[in-house]
Design a protein around this nucleic acid. Structure first.
Length: 441
DNA sequence: GATCCACAGGAAATTAAGGGTC
DNA sequence: GACCCTTAATTTCCTGTGGATC
């Protein structure tokens, strides 16, 4: 029987898996949320934050802080690290433990929700509803809860990815309230720690918010290849049974892993996930050693997985827009396509699907820009003068197989993978009758 | 230099949905 | 149940853009 037709036997698979070498000592040690006892190459940042927070031990309120740096530069890890050490010290010397409120503004992205989340983390047994209450009522309840809960301790509010807070008015409003809480109400001891990937984030803020929120600022530089190598080396000993000297991970593989991540913005998270993924590929094959080829293989898997998952999770209209870009690109032999052509094709597709009304071109333009920001498409605005005006030319960054795989999984769109847009069909007819077709570009 | 095209994209308005209060 | 609140998604309106053409 052909191997492809053999049925997968899950019991045999588990038995073989158990017989294979034990590679991982602790998978968690490669998780970005894992906080090790040592954070290599972040001494300066740990020192600055610790110096600011130290006054908590003497029951004073530290200055608000702003931490900048690209993703994977250790901002959140350093904060969590210092937080743990500070809490341990408070416990040891008998000072009231600080309260830590951690909010990822990528998920909680409105001022209203930030206030609700702070309240719910302080009092999880009596949570406030996600909507419905007027802003001033939420604020009143939050102040009253802070009054009851904080006592002599300090409440640290960590706003991670603070640049994702949307709506400038609401953002300024909530940051102003939070940053001025101590001043306005005297008896509260609240400290704000803003974390952002965008160095210019503060430029957009109201000047009053800016001055009180960013009392202390700290920049986290990207890691270079050597620094990433040190980080990985420290984790290898914690994560794998063989460690680096015990022969499971070769030094060359580790250096390659660090070099790839260094090239991609010096992201330590990327380096760790690359190492974990490659080790899992080796484990599945029951091999004894992690070599360079598995790092490359893991890189391909991660890139492909990320893009496939992204496309699979797109909302229905955005999938139709992506399909329209793909079809135009396909029939124009890889040439970029204009936003007008994409909108026409999108409208044609929507007509063929029951129960879906097309969005306006304005909305489609916004969704195209989102695809661009995600790296799925790449576009640029060009002007063709008085005859054809100004338009956005859109190209696709993914291979035909990935697009066909991802869109083909969606029953609504899979049957249109070979659909020929009408303007392309018209071009074919004109060629057939020997007429000179005026090409668009 | 004025005009034109075909949009781009910001801002405000609208709509729908989910929820609370009285 | 009427009314009020919020958010997210979308539409509507409007001004701006930049290169070709007149």
């Amino acid at each position: 029987m052909d191997n492809k037709n053999e049925q997968f036997n899950i019991d045999n698979f588990f038995n073989d898996y158990l017989k294979g070498p034990i590679i991982f000592k602790s998978r968690d040690a490669l998780d970005p949320s894992f906080i090790p006892d040592e954070l290599p190459h972040r001494d300066e940042q740990i020192k600055t934050i610790a110096q600011n927070m130290a006054c908590t031990l003497k029951q004073s309120t530290p200055l608000n802080m702003f931490l900048y740096g690209k993703s994977g530069t250790g901002k959140t890890a350093v904060i969590r690290y210092v937080a743990k050490k500070l809490s341990d010290k408070c416990l040891k010397i008998g000072v009231s433990l600080p309260h830590w409120i951690y909010i990822n503004c990528n998920q909680v992205n409105s001022g209203y929700r930030v206030m609700i989340t702070i309240y719910n983390q302080l009092d999880p047994d009596n949570p406030l509803p996600p909507t419905g209450l007027p802003r001033d009522v939420v604020l009143e309840r939050l102040f009253s809860l802070l009054d009851k809960t904080i006592g002599n301790s300090v409440c640290f509010i960590i706003l991670d990815e603070i640049d994702h807070l949307k709506d400038k008015k609401s953002k300024d409003n909530v940051l102003y309230i939070l940053s001025r809480m101590n001043e306005t109400f005297g008896h509260y001891r609240v400290n704000i720690l803003g974390i952002s990937n965008v160095l210019t984030f503060k430029d957009d803020l109201d000047s009053r918010v800016c001055s009180s929120l960013g009392e202390e600022e700290l920049v986290f530089p990207a890691y270079n290849a050597m620094e990433l190598y040190d980080i990985l080396k420290a984790r290898v000993d914690l994560a794998f049974c063989g460690g680096i000297n015990g022969a499971f991970v070769t030094d060359g593989a580790l250096r390659l892993c660090a070099a790839i991540a260094a090239k991609e913005n010096g992201d330590a998270r990327r380096a760790l996930s690359l190492l974990r993924k490659s080790a899992e590929l080796v484990e599945r094959r029951g091999l004894p050693k992690l070599t360079k080829e598995y790092i490359y293989l893991a890189q391909d898997h991660i890139t492909k997985d990320k893009r496939t998952v992204f496309i699979n999770n797109l909302p229905v209209h955005q999938k139709a827009i992506l399909l329209s870009i793909y079809l135009n690109n396909k029939y124009k032999n890889g040439e970029k396509t204009s936003s007008g052509e994409v909108y026409n094709t999108y409208s044609e597709l929507l007509k063929r699907v029951y129960g879906l009304n097309k969005l306006t071109s304005r909305r489609v333009a916004t969704l195209v820009k989102e695809l661009d920001q995600a790296g799925v498409t790449s576009s640029n605005v060009v002007s063709y003068g008085s005859k054809r005006g100004r338009t956005r030319m859109i190209g696709i960054n993914l291979g035909v197989e990935i697009m066909a795989d991802s869109l083909g999984n969606d029953s609504r769109w899979s049957e249109y993978l070979n659909y020929v847009p009408s303007h392309i069909r018209r071009q074919d007819i004109n060629v057939y009758y020997g007429k000179k077709y005026r090409t668009l570009f």
